[in-house]
Design a protein around this nucleic acid. Sequence first.
DNA 1: CGTATTCCCTGCACGC
DNA 2: TGCGTGCAGGGAATAC
Length: 270
Amino acid sequence: MPELPEVETTRRGIEPHVLGQRIESLLLRRPDLRWPIPDHLVRTLPGREIEAVRRRAKYLLIDTEPGSMLIHLGMSGSLRVLTPGFGAGKHDHYDLALGSGQVLRYNDPRRFGCLLWQAADETHELLAALGPEPLGDTFDGDYLYSLSRGRSAPVKAFLMDQSVVVGVGNIYVAEALFEAGIRPTRAAGKVSRAAYGAVAMAIRRILAYAITRGGTTLRDFLKPDGEPGYFEQELSVYGRAEEPCRVCGKPIKQVVQSNRSSFYCPSCQK
DNA sequence: CGTATTCCCTGCACGC
DNA sequence: TGCGTGCAGGGAATAC
């Protein structure tokens, strides 16, 4: 699930339950996800108070006085706040037990996610080269236009490059390029300033809207069962190969770019 | 430096 | 029913 809206939805979902809580313990059920989980965390975290729950790009940061838990959900990760009594499932890799008696539990079948540590006075290497937040003040069409000059890579790859702009994944890039009328296969350096203005607006609008839709799942956040695909029925092109374009009726095309599926309308996107 | 490819891992839908 | 294949929303590592 997790592109930026899903991560932000997770942040908002867990924040009321974990902010200000004392960490009682960290239970690791396996020593590694994508990378080894620093083993000092089981000693460092107990007794600390959670001071903030932040998001940077697709990372969640849970702040304590000596530093922050750095959490990425990868492609299949999720965090859930549970009241005691739920047995751990197969892919429940760690539990953070809180003073309230509740537990913050991480589940990730594919283990592409990570749990790392960022000391209070440092910026983790993984966060060092990230581009601007798409919903922040510095992100706009002129920024994309300037950065893209001379680039031959497809505009889709350019927009998914986390050093260009963060948080845009395979689904939302397809939707934003559709809304802006740009084919994902165009060279990034050949897209006009006006078109980048449109795509920047589309990215902001779609991500912000998806976050509000994610809000509908917040009410169910404490439930241990899976959340519904809240945004799925509103997608214009993603996953709709051969289905009629909602604007012009022509069949949506699916192509493979750098080993991942791209979707676009051959009539609406030039 | 930028670009393209490969790989990490498990689960699931599909065809035979 | 079982087995093989391809695919999945991320992104780092590697090879040019």
